[in-house]
């Protein structure tokens, strides 16, 4: 082992000498240890101890978290949000990507779909209010189209519809990202296979379902994981449009963590962070397992 530390490594038959890779890695590794790894372990420890007394608390924080009304509401909403958004975004993304791949010079249209990524959440808070207010542009449009009477005036942000506004916001923000991922996946499908199938007389529809789609399974996994993780960032728009305590249909785990942080409920936060982290890692591993089996 000593020789490796000194930077001598055997690779095949070649022998080469270099500075220990540790020199390159050290600055980043120190930062990661200091800001991520060690404090995460500390959070795990805290989730089992009482912050004030420093005594062993067992699972009491976890019980407290799971009994908490706000936590249940937020967890349920987050699950519901994910269950609605992920299939919607991934499906729409594929649809648009396939359509775009058949259009010549899609660069401009791609840019239009991607552009919401560059718009800071803060810049659109007022626009969203103009659109989704009881007297907003959406209701105005519906009245003009005759789908709504002048008096109905639903207030989208103050009712259960707030959830769907959030879904719309998420799709608006992330569709371009997903489309680019799908386009990368589509371009990796060997052109010869598609060509051969066409020669054999396969219809475009059949070609897509039988040839292209099975070749996109690998992309599906990463797109799902990335879309899932990006879904946590929808808090930015949610918070800026509706504040710390929005309509309860869109009260997400992100709101809860933020509010617990404000009230310094560190014990509960520790237990909830451990749970959320575990669920996320579990979900990612499960997806990976499913995906590997498919291969």
């Amino acid at each position: 082992m000593r020789s490796k530390k000194n930077g001598i490594v055997r690779e095949g038959k070649a022998r080469r000498v270099f500075h220990s890779p540790l020199c390159f890695l050290a600055p980043s590794l120190i930062g990661v240890m200091l800001f991520s790894c060690l404090p995460s372990l500390d959070v795990v420890r805290r989730s089992f101890t009482n912050a004030a007394a420093g005594s062993w608390a067992g699972l009491s924080h976890y019980r407290e978290v799971f009994a908490n009304e706000a936590f249940r509401l937020a967890a349920w909403n987050t699950v519901r949000f994910t269950a609605v958004c992920l299939p919607l975004l991934v499906g729409l993304g594929l649809f648009v990507a396939v359509a775009l791949s058949k259009v010549r010079g899609g660069q401009t249209i791609r840019a239009m779909f991607l552009f919401p990524m560059a718009i800071p959440a803060a810049a659109i808070a007022l626009v969203w209010r103009m659109v989704f207010d009881a007297g907003g542009l959406l209701n105005l449009l519906l009245v003009r189209l005759g789908l709504l009477t002048q008096e109905a005036r639903p207030d989208y942000m103050g009712s259960g519809a707030a959830f769907w506004v959030l879904v719309f916001t998420y799709v608006w923000k992330n569709l371009g990202y997903t489309v680019v991922l799908w386009l990368a996946g589509l371009s990796a499908v060997p052109a010869e296979i598609a060509e051969a199938a066409r020669m054999d007389g396969a219809s475009e529809r059949r070609l897509f379902w039988r040839i292209i789609l099975p070749n996109l399974k690998g992309s599906l996994y990463t797109i799902t994981v990335l879309s899932f993780l990006n879904s946590f960032k929808v808090f930015r728009e949610a918070y800026l449009v509706a504040g710390s305590y929005p309509d309860e249909s869109m009260y997400l785990l992100q709101h809860l963590f933020n509010n617990w942080f404000v009230s310094m409920d560190l014990d509960k936060m520790a237990a909830a962070a451990v749970c959320l982290g575990a669920v996320l890692l579990g979900a990612i591993l499960l997806l990976q397992r499913l995906w590997d089996r498919e291969d």
């Binding site: 800001f35 790894c37 404090p39 995460s40 959070v43 805290r46 993780l229 960032k233 936060m269 982290g277």
Partner: peptide, 24 residues
């Protein structure tokens, strides 16, 4: 192992790391 660790950390949302960041 390091590569897996780095990818794993990259995937954690802020809410999970919020408390640990705060403590440091």
């Amino acid at each position: 192992f390091l590569l897996t660790l780095y990818v794993g950390l990259m995937l954690l949302p802020f809410q999970v790391t919020m408390l640990s960041n705060f403590l440091v």
